[in-house]
Amino acid sequence: MKALLVEKDGDGPAKPAIRDIPESDLPEAEVTVAVEYSTVNYKDGLCLSENGGGLVRKYPHVPGIDFAGTVESSSDDRYAPGDKVVLTGWRVGEAHWGGYAEKARVRADWLVPLPAGLTSRQAMAVGTAGFTAMLSVMALEDHGLTPDKGPVLVTGAAGGVGSVATMILSGLGYEVAAVTGRPETGDYLKSLGASTIVPRADLAETVKRPLESEAWAGCIDAVGGDMLARVLGQMKYGASVAAVGLAGGAKLPATVIPFLLRGVNLLGIDSVMQPYENRLRAWERVARDLPMDKLEAAVQPATLDDLPKLGAAILQGQVKGRVVVDIAG
């Protein structure tokens, strides 16, 4: 079978290359999947880098934290040959061989049936980024967000999570304010449904005042750091921020004032270890609420050969929208 194998020779740098490897090299697990499509996430870029980004435990390694395809064999009664499945998270592609190969062997607990109405390709246009975006929307709704409450801020909006979050929110009738540091993506974000483009510089610095004027009814934040601290002070009373990333840094130079005086909620969103039932709920919402025409417009097609360059590009913030990798392409 063909695979993108990352190999490391002693203390030298890790290097990815297309290899033909025997199926017997796959790790032991209950379900073997013929992989049809995968995608490129920030973690994939790390796993393809010279040091594995601190995520890869053992070489040689097959990255790819997401994949969709068809069950080929299964020793678990929940899945049978011919079933269409999706995998995101569970440290697959990091600690366990992932989706950048024609076949993957994984635990049955890690899989989710492909939702009705979605193709394998569409599922990977969604991927971990879109799955995380939907989890974020669900969390905000669970904490009272409705379209009539006011505009919703999306930071890092031109990235994978931000792009899909913008599509979902606008499709549900929300007014979306999209934050980007790349002015050239403004038209792209408006095509996804953004009502307003907010330059990153407007939110890049913290201010001395812990509270500013109330501006946002909700926020999906992929940046963290100074920007998240600034946004917390701009939230409306009782509003929530779904924190999904740390592109701007892991530190949070904020005060507790927005939580105490405005009842602001900071919601942590984890997609890796998400329980099965909530995964099903999120994927069902994706199939129902994500405008597939807008999703397709945000797709960049790729093959296994493209992955080393794409991995480096996503670490530099140079990938727009969603990459769909045709494993057989």
Rank of each mutant, 00 (worst) to 15 (best):
G12C: 13
G12A: 15
A14N: 11
I18T: 14
V33K: 03
V35F: 02
D44K: 08
L48E: 12
G53D: 03
G54Q: 05
Y59E: 11
H61K: 10
P63E: 12
D66C: 03
D66I: 03
T70N: 01
V71P: 00
R78C: 08
A80R: 15
P81I: 09
G82P: 05
G82H: 07
A95T: 14
H96R: 14
H96F: 14
W97R: 11
Y100G: 14
A101R: 10
W110Q: 12
L118Q: 01
S120C: 15
R121H: 12
T128A: 06
A133L: 02
S136G: 08
A139R: 08
H143C: 07
G150W: 00
V152Q: 00
G159M: 11
G159P: 08
V161W: 04
V161E: 04
V161L: 06
L169V: 09
L172D: 06
E175Y: 02
G186S: 15
Y188N: 02
L189G: 05
G193T: 08
A194L: 07
S195Y: 07
V198T: 01
R200F: 11
R200H: 13
E205K: 15
V207R: 14
K208W: 05
P210N: 03
L211C: 00
E214T: 01
C219W: 00
V223H: 00
R230Q: 07
Q234E: 14
K236G: 07
L246E: 12
A247W: 02
A247D: 04
G248Y: 04
L252W: 12
V256Y: 06
I257G: 09
V264M: 01
L267R: 05
I269E: 04
S271P: 04
W283Y: 01
W283P: 00
R285S: 12
P291Y: 07
D293R: 11
A297G: 08
V299S: 01
L304W: 09
D306T: 13
P308A: 11
L315I: 07
Q316N: 15
V325M: 06
G329L: 04
